[in-house]
């Protein structure tokens, strides 16, 4: 059973269909990529998973159980953690306290004997934030803030990690480190969903890749399969003369 499943999820805003009957699944112990050009509906479906955007139709299953109507904080307690494309860090707290407070929030609902301070120290090292531990988060660069969000998500010990563009704002080296970290997490058994526009990163770390274009799933497969798919090429580079997919033509027009 996959960790997370979307079943024919649609989201409509007024006359615009942001997500159109998308079904996909996120497996444990693997990294699932979700890519697509700007405005393809990636962030919208991501918010559906996270519980911040109710779908117009369709279902979301976590470990096989329907969570479509479950509130965001309850989803977190069932093992789901996420990051935000537009950062939602705790700007007035230090990097260390951002991670620590996440562990403390977890402790408050998990009611176990975990030690939030120790969790924070461990993650500072693991994510490579030791040098900026004391800085207030609204004073650090975007790339660093993204890593803070990742560390904060990990502090809740999730079984499913949803990452919304974690690579943007990171330099080449930081991206490499991020990729390695994600591979480690998957190897430890975590299910990871990676929404990302850095195609290189996606191709390197993902086991399966889903491609969205104007709200529809247009391809699914291994990175190599997806890369070779003409529909994906068209979605990214624009159609070559004469090869516009008939199926795509009517989309975008109501």
């Amino acid at each position: 059973m996959p960790a997370l499943q979307a079943e024919t999820v649609s989201v409509r805003f007024g006359g615009v269909v942001a997500v159109d009957r998308v079904s996909l699944s996120v497996e444990r112990g693997a990294i699932t990529g979700l890519i697509g050009p700007n405005g393809a509906g990636k962030t919208t479906i991501f918010n559906v998973f996270g519980g911040l955007q109710p779908p117009t139709e369709g279902r979301v299953l976590l470990d096989g159980k329907d969570i479509t109507r479950v509130k965001a904080h309850t989803r977190a307690r069932k093992g789901m953690a996420r990051t935000f494309q537009r950062l939602e860090v705790f700007g007035t707290l230090s990097v260390r306290d951002n991670i620590r407070v996440a562990a403390e929030i977890r402790k408050a609902w998990a009611r176990d004997r975990s030690r939030p301070a120790a969790v924070a120290e461990e993650l500072l090292d693991r994510i490579g934030l030791r040098d900026v531990a004391e800085s207030r988060v609204d004073a650090v660069p975007t790339g660093t803030a993204r890593l803070v969000e990742l560390a904060r998500a990990l502090a809740t010990r999730p079984s499913l990690l949803l990452l919304d563009e974690p690579g943007s704002g990171l330099d080449q080296q930081e991206t490499t480190v991020l990729g390695d970290l994600l591979l480690d997490l998957a190897a430890e058994g975590m299910a990871v969903l990676l929404v990302e526009h850095d195609v290189e990163l996606v191709m390197r770390v993902c086991d399966r890749v889903n491609v969205l274009d104007f709200g529809r799933l247009i391809a699914e497969g291994t990175p190599a399969e997806v890369q070779a798919d003409p529909a994906v090429q068209a979605a990214y580079l624009g159609a070559e003369e004469g090869d516009a997919d008939e199926d795509l033509e009517e989309a975008g027009v109501r």
């Binding site: 519980g51 700007g91 407070v101 904060r152």
Partner: peptide
């Protein structure tokens, strides 16, 4: 402090 910085993020942490 976390709640007044971002209630949405707090909710996603549980």
């Amino acid at each position: 402090a976390a709640m007044s910085d971002s209630a949405a993020a707090c909710a996603t942490l549980g």
